[in-house]
Write a protein that binds this DNA or RNA. Structure first.
Length: 768
DNA sequence: TAGGCTGTGGTTGCG
DNA sequence: CCACAGCCTA
């Protein structure tokens, strides 16, 4: 038996060595999922299977790359010929080769979300619909939902449920927008992200010769993060794996408890359908967690037990040494950021954590700002993930639009973006005329540029621009992508435009970003010449500009190499999936934020939020800190908030402290110090209110009978008050109005001279 | 034609 | 509060 198999436990090894027939691995957090997937591919290769017969579909490019690297370590450079990538990148590659069969140019454009939205915006405008009512983003997700469920425009119209939903949302013309959108994408030779899947499905479905070819090629199919696949993705897998005479070698790894993309169309039904469609299915459950210590694993189990629909499993860990979960009850979001960062400093000093061991997680990206401010104050290096991606920056998109137009002149989003940027005398009015002309004659903008009736000056400018692009097009097949791209960069005027703004910090960074695109193209051409696509067919390496563009559109920020290796990670809980850190801070654990306001309105939304919390908690290896604030800015308004119901779903034995505001004393002591259960119970003050009915175990202790909270209005400067936790004190001052009133109170024997309590939130009893 | 100003809307997010 | 779209003005 190969050496690497010795690194696996019994269940893992059984899964890895079952290489014939359908296999489902239910892999709990930290259970060695990546290792199983990697070794399984290695094992298949060791049986003498050619690497190009192995397909491995992952959720992110990063996961694919990591997997390839790890396989390579086991089996050597052969690993590079494995078809490992995301659904989108693998299918883009196949579609590029087969584009002619489905009526697309092989250099088709890929529309990203911004392109899609901007196209929808123009369609909505052309149709004279109200953009308020027909919110382009809402329409976009609608179309995405349709495509993910194989609903083409005619099927959409015939679907009573979809049509009724549109009527109820007062968007009855959604189907018409959808139809136009599809026509326009086709005319532009463009596919959006969903099309990469949908067209792949069409290709396999309607072209038996193509289907045979890829079924023959891919004898071993692997899917990572199976719980996050949607109906369409599953349908494609089904086409590839289920046919007469198929070996049905489909190996799927996932965890229903970590499904957090239902809002995007992912469906747990895929896991259930899997066993129906493939009756030979063998299922393995990986339940041992190698990542986290005991309290973290136990807390995670308790959280997920509150969900109704899930596959039964019990995650356990052999690691008993364990810190308890630390709670930070904070006054405001500013206070929260300060205390989280203070605690990070303390953890670094006391436990010798590196920055890279630490992550701050939050529900919404907007929460990152306050943490950034505090981290800067402490001079701690950090990196924020999410938000505006590199590839969404204006200067990057502008340059890419020039390149796209060169490769595919019918790409209307690219054309509209740069036809007059930098300014070259083609006004909005001119573009509108070209658009109207194109619409009237049902022809692409590129052709309409020649035939539209324009005033002489505008006409000249348009023809000049067209000639410039044509000069690049003629070179596209002959020259290297890099040479051509750098000429386009200069000749388009984009370089000069960016150079003229490099005086400011922002302008300089824009110039650098655009330059970075050229560096990336240079790197791409180098790499492509090193690695043939396919050793079997002898396909030549594709270093063309078109190939680069189809890759780059599918990249995200997470795929960029980092220059500073040791930084604190700031990201949304979603983005943290698949990662692990020694110390994790989950912040903003408040009702209406986590769980989000939105989730509470949708059926199943609460369960999905709970799974998200489960994912966040299980990122922590040793230290888990959860914070929440009584008051935070939301949409410019100061809003109060209650602790998240999810906090009450964890048994208090796993908490080091309960809402321990002001426990400066405690924080000076080792975190491993275990608070006595009695002390913990006593310190919980009735704020763990939970709307969930089935939580008797974690109901808060009632306050003493002689404690009657006074109305907030009764609290005024000078009066003596009692607080359940801090004891007696004197009110020094009161600021703010109504629900935002905050009192500064000096409590007897308190190490903090004055505490600021939000009156709507704090329970205070006036004593005189 | 470009920049400034006002109004509006605002989860989560892989490709 | 903050980002952005669309409108208006110089």
């Amino acid at each position: 038996m190969a050496h690497y198999l010795d690194e696996l436990n019994d269940v893992q090894r059984a899964a890895v060595t079952t290489i014939e027939g359908p296999v489902l691995v239910i892999a709990g957090p930290g259970s060695g999922k990546t290792r199983v997937l990697t070794y399984r591919v290695a094992y298949v290769l060791e049986q003498g299977i050619e690497p190009w017969r192995v397909l491995a579909l992952t959720f992110t490019n990063k996961a694919a790359r990591e997997m390839t690297e790890r396989i390579e370590r086991v089996v050597g450079p052969r690993a590079r010929y494995v078809w490992a990538g995301t659904f989108h990148s693998i299918f883009a590659r196949i579609l590029r080769a087969e584009a002619g069969k489905i009526g697309y140019p092989s250099s088709f454009s890929i529309y990203d979300t911004d392109d899609t939205v901007s196209l929808l915006r123009s369609i909505i405008k052309e149709m004279s619909l109200d953009p308020q009512q027909y919110n382009p983003n809402a329409i976009r997700s609608r179309i995405s939902l349709a495509k993910s469920n194989l609903l083409t425009p005619p099927l959409y119209r015939a679907n009573d449920q979809m049509m009724e939903q549109d009527r109820q949302a007062r968007r009855p013309f959604t189907a018409d927008i959808y139809e136009r959108y599809v026509t326009r994408c086709k005319r532009a030779g463009a596919m959006d992200f969903d099309d990469l899947l949908l067209q792949m499905h069409h290709l396999l479905r309607n072209h038996p010769d193509v289907a045979d070819k890829y079924r023959e090629r891919f004898r071993y199919l692997h899917v990572d993060e199976f719980q996050d696949t949607n109906f369409l993705q599953y349908a494609i897998l089904h086409l590839l794996a289920k046919y007469p005479g198929s070996p049905e070698n489909l190996f799927a790894v996932g965890d229903d408890a970590q499904s957090i993309y239902a809002f995007r169309g992912a469906t747990i039904d895929n896991i259930l359908d899997f066993s129906k469609d493939f009756p030979q299915l063998k299922t393995f459950k990986l339940e041992q967690n190698y990542r986290s210590t005991a309290h973290i694993v136990a807390a995670a189990n308790e959280i997920i037990a509150h969900n109704s629909r899930q596959l039964p499993k019990k995650i356990w860990t052999a690691r008993s040494d364990s810190h308890k979960i630390r709670l930070l009850r904070c006054m405001t979001d500013d206070d929260e950021a300060r205390r989280v960062v203070d605690l990070i400093v303390e953890q670094k000093n006391r436990l010798h954590l590196r920055n890279g061991d630490i992550a701050i997680l939050y529900r919404t990206n907007a929460q990152s700002r306050k943490f950034e401010e505090q981290l800067r104050r402490q001079n701690l290096p950090y990196r924020v993930f999410g938000g505006l991606s590199f590839y969404q920056r204006k200067e990057v998109k502008d340059l890419l639009a020039y390149l796209r137009l060169t490769v595919n002149p019918y790409d209307e989003e690219a054309l509209a973006r740069i036809i007059n940027y930098p300014a070259r005398g083609i006004s909005d009015a001119t573009l509108t005329k070209i658009r109207q002309h194109a619409a009237a004659n049902n022809q692409p903008l590129w052709d309409a540029m020649l035939t539209a009736d324009l005033p002489e000056r505008a006409r000249k400018a348009v023809l000049n621009f067209r000639a410039l692009v044509e000069s690049w097009q003629r070179r596209a097949h002959k020259e290297s992508a890099y040479q051509l791209a750098s000429d386009i960069y200069r000749q388009s005027g984009l370089l000069d435009e960016l150079k003229s703004e490099r005086g400011t910090e922002e302008g300089l960074s824009r110039l650098q970003n655009a330059n970075a695109v050229l560096d990336a193209i240079s790197e791409f051409t180098d790499n492509a010449s090193k690695l043939p696509l396919n050793e079997e067919s002898g396909e030549t390496p594709d270093a063309s500009l078109a190939a680069y563009l189809q890759t780059v559109t599918l990249l995200t920020d997470a795929d960029m190499a980092s220059d500073s290796p040791d930084y604190i990670t700031l990201m949304s809980a979603h983005a943290a999936k698949g990662l692990e850190f020694r110390s994790v801070f989950i912040t903003g654990m408040e009702e209406m934020l986590f769980p989000s306001f939105f989730a509470l309105e949708n059926p199943g939304g609460l369960d999905e939020e709970r799974r998200l919390f489960y994912v966040a908690v299980t990122r922590a290896k040793e230290l888990l800190t959860i914070s929440f604030a009584g008051v935070r800015y939301r949409n410019g308004r100061l809003a109060e908030s209650a602790p998240s119901r999810f906090l009450g779903e964890i048994d208090r034995e796993h908490y080091e402290n309960l809402g321990g505001i002001g426990s400066r004393r405690a924080s000076a002591e080792p975190i491993s110090r275990v608070a006595s259960p009695a002390a913990s119970r006593a310190s919980v003050s009735g704020n763990f209110s939970s709307p969930q009915p089935h939580q008797s175990r974690t109901q808060p202790t009632a306050p003493p009978a002689d404690f009657k909270p006074s109305p907030p209005e009764a609290v005024a400067p000078g009066v003596r008050v009692r607080h359940l936790k801090f004891g007696e004190g004197v009110v020094r001052s009161v600021e703010g109005a109504r629900e935002n009133r905050v009192a500064s109170i000096a409590f007897q024997g308190d190490e903090i001279p004055e505490r600021r309590l939000v009156l709507r939130f704090a329970k205070l009893m006036v004593l005189d």
